[in-house]
Write a protein that binds this DNA or RNA. Structure first.
Lengths: 197, 197
DNA sequence: TCGCCTTTGGGATTTCTTTCACAAGCTCAC
DNA sequence: GTGAGCTTGTGAAAGAAATCCCAAAGGCGA
């Protein structure tokens, strides 16, 4: 469910003294309707207490479970251009349970240097690394022309989730999930809503 | 409609000699069903030719109209951190009709320097600039704590569309449209789909 | 213990979206 | 001109999601 992360955020931002939260509050945070929230939660088989609300710590645990992020996840970023570097530096990832463990590029001038704590490595060395299954989630921040090729390579070596920033659709086997982030498309959609006041 | 930008992309990526495109092709590019595409297009009152398909240039124009990007749009980026700089450098924006005309920050060490062709300006100078209505779309790439304040300021001065990269929901008047891009949420959603094969 | 207050849970309904299926309509070859 | 071959356009069906609404149930104060 696409709203779970939003609930999770509210839970994390909540005053630590709060031990209960209502569907109403969750709804507002997620930009949804309270009935909607209740259905979402009952759908993941999480139940609250009538007259009171939902237990904050328990819901936190349950949602993380459901999202498959109960444990910290290891993530690799491919492409050490501006975007790749921005992502490697972005503190929010670590805060939300994602550790950037590697940053790959093909530019020999970049290889060996560091971005924050992360060493830039040669993309050619990827094969060995991946085989050891050190990560299963990858962020694709390479130029459009390279995206498909890199994606295939990642898949071949066990990555099953790709967050793709390259402005092309990558073709991968059914079992791999890809999420597309396309900035210009976001702006276009924004412009669409903006243009009709 | 959230699929229009995807159709638009296909149109732009298409071989220039092509002057006609079928709903089938559009569907594949957008990850949708052909009937779906036909309904979308008839919904924006665009019609094709039976037995042939849709006129590429006409569809291009019509979608841009619908998205409110018939003309180039002027965009300002607030925050010249890693992300802001990555965005300012990102060629895709210009290619898709968005011109980054300004980059704002508060760090005096950055002000006056350039990122690509764009000069970093003092955020304090924003007021004058905005009043002249030089842009109506802004990209928010500032730290979470500053987001709300900056957003209010932008709105006050005529911005009506905000693409927000800060990991907080900003509160703005009804008439302003905000689109949230949250990388860790994307990863969480990805993880969710990934965890259920 | 009783009853009021609050908030959940979920049946029923509405609304929105997707998909199916096929008639209608256009082009082109002959 | 005529028929074959595509591809659109859209009514109808199916499916998914959102919302309404109220009974059920827990807590808390008296």
């Amino acid at each position: 469910m696409v709203r779970l992360p939003r609930y999770l955020r509210l839970l994390e931002d909540l005053d630590p003294s709060r031990d209960v939260v209502s569907s109403e509050e969750l709804a507002e945070a997620a930009g949804a309707n309270a009935a909607n929230v209740r259905r979402d939660l009952s759908h993941i088989d999480f139940h609250g207490v009538r007259g009171i609300g939902y237990s904050v710590p328990e819901l936190n645990v349950r949602i993380r479970q459901e999202l498959g992020i109960a444990d910290r996840q290891r993530v690799a970023i491919v492409g050490a251009g501006n975007l790749g570097r921005a992502l490697a530096n972005y503190g929010g990832l670590s805060k939300r349970g994602f550790d950037v463990i590697a940053l790959y590029d093909t530019d020999v001038r970049k290889i060996g240097t560091k971005v924050g704590d992360v060493l830039i490595q040669d993309l050619e060395g990827l094969d060995g690394d991946c085989l050891s299954k050190s990560f299963e989630i990858a962020i694709l921040a390479v130029p459009a022309v390279a995206a498909q090729q890199v994606a295939e390579r990642l898949v071949e070596h066990g990555v099953h989730s790709i967050l793709n920033f390259a402005p092309v659709r990558v073709n991968v086997p059914e079992k791999v999930s890809v999420r597309q982030v396309d900035l210009s498309m976001e702006l276009q959609v924004l412009s669409y809503y903006g243009s009709r006041l």
